[in-house]
Design a protein around this nucleic acid. Structure first.
Lengths: 225, 225
DNA sequence: TGCGCACCTATTGTATACAATTTGCCCTCG
DNA sequence: CGAGGGCAAATTGTATACAATAGGTGCGCA
């Protein structure tokens, strides 16, 4: 992970997610290379990766743009995730062995723990959450599916800086995972798919609401600049 | 386009599809830059693109490998396409206007024409077929979905060099499209999804059969070398 | 003989200089 | 005063040289 490309990727990504730029802003490779502290060559690789993940776009003439993530885009993304992760859960349900299910249960315990505190550990929650979903996706044994989901899942992190999630939402997520684990133990692919579907669809609404709040704040913040 | 990256992409891709290499073979950037006639810089971009499209892979230590497309991978790919293009057809059914449906009908006429001849025009058929599916995908108005499908649809072309498709299979494809168009005219998303699903699933079997035949031939060919 | 280490080679990663393209501005002309 | 054309600056695209890392081979030692 010590390569310059990865450094560039991480730094540029943080820069984007920290809200230093606004959707539609034009960026240059040189500017990004200053931010990342490496030359343009690895920056170009990082940009291409961020492009794949749709955090950046290019104009017809290859200028770099910050992507626009409105509610429609979020909806679209969660719809695709629901379809694909539902499929992944279905496959996982008939492929996971006992040990792997135990492992999922262990990971989900972390989720429960993270929100049981007075001050919920949101970062820890999100890490464990990602690991949980990744583990399920892995268990589907479908490399292309995994690749596509990796690309889609990257984006919601945009909002992780804003901790707009209510504790109750987080707790409900962990409970959804519990039910998913139950579906796995029962080896019931249809149940697994259904749980994953409703889990992600509700997540969409939580997320969209949080985004609306954050946008309001962002506007105020900017106005105050 | 006329950029060196695109040249590299085209030439390397042709090289792969022409069967000059076998799945699992290791390639080097330098070799590829000789093949493409450009320097390593654009080659690296081309490789990264081919990696996205899963025609190439990298080892843990970033060596370039020719991807392995066995029957499992083909199955996986068509399963994902069925899911995603089914979704696209569903969305398209409630978004297409009359003119666009007429356009689809026109494209599909090309498909019918291409196989009506004594010597079917396979290349023309495949081009028109791709255009048909792309048009439907476009009409779904879901950029991310489009991007993912573009990535998935790239691959089957691997076999286009082998014209193992029977005329009857091609004619059936065109008839499937007719039915899809009927579903669009009826503005029935469920019908559209179902037709697209069975269309792609049968295409999988045709494709897998063709691949098995080709592999047999390939083995003979190699043995004779 | 078989294992492991060291060195040499092959290959990928990065920086930099230069080429090609695009952008924005200013100037001219109608 | 506006439209168009062309020039200069900004930006992306490509080549090449060098740096860092991985692979492989042969030798020594048990």
């Amino acid at each position: 992970m010590s390569t310059a490309s990865d450094t560039a990727y991480d730094k540029i990504r943080s820069h984007l997610l920290a809200g230093k730029v606004r959707p539609g802003d034009r960026l240059t490779e040189e500017l990004l290379s200053e931010i990342a502290g490496v030359s343009r060559t690895p920056v170009r690789e990082a940009v291409s990766r961020l492009e794949r993940e749709l955090l950046l776009t290019r104009t017809e003439t290859n200028r770099i743009l910050v992507s626009d993530w409105g509610e429609d885009e979020i909806d679209e993304m969660f719809t695709l995730r629901q379809m694909l992760e539902g499929h992944a859960a279905e496959r996982a349900a008939i492929r996971l062995d006992e040990d792997q299910i135990d492992e999922l249960a262990r990971i989900n315990q972390e989720l429960h723990d993270a929100v049981a505190l007075d001050q919920p550990d949101v970062a820890g929650f999100l890490d464990a959450n990602r690991l949980f979903h990744e583990t399920v996706t892995q268990a589907a044994h479908s490399p292309r599916l995994g690749q596509i989901l990796a690309m889609l899942v990257e984006q919601p992190v945009v909002l992780h800086t804003a901790r707009e999630y209510s504790i109750e939402d987080l707790k409900q997520s962990a409970r959804d995972h519990d039910e998913l684990i139950a579906a796995f133990r029962a080896r019931d692919p249809h149940w697994a798919r259904a749980v994953m579907g409703s889990h992600l669809r509700r997540a969409f609404h939580v997320f969209a609401d949080a985004m609306r709040d954050q946008q309001g704040q962002g506007a105020k913040g900017r106005a105050a600049e």
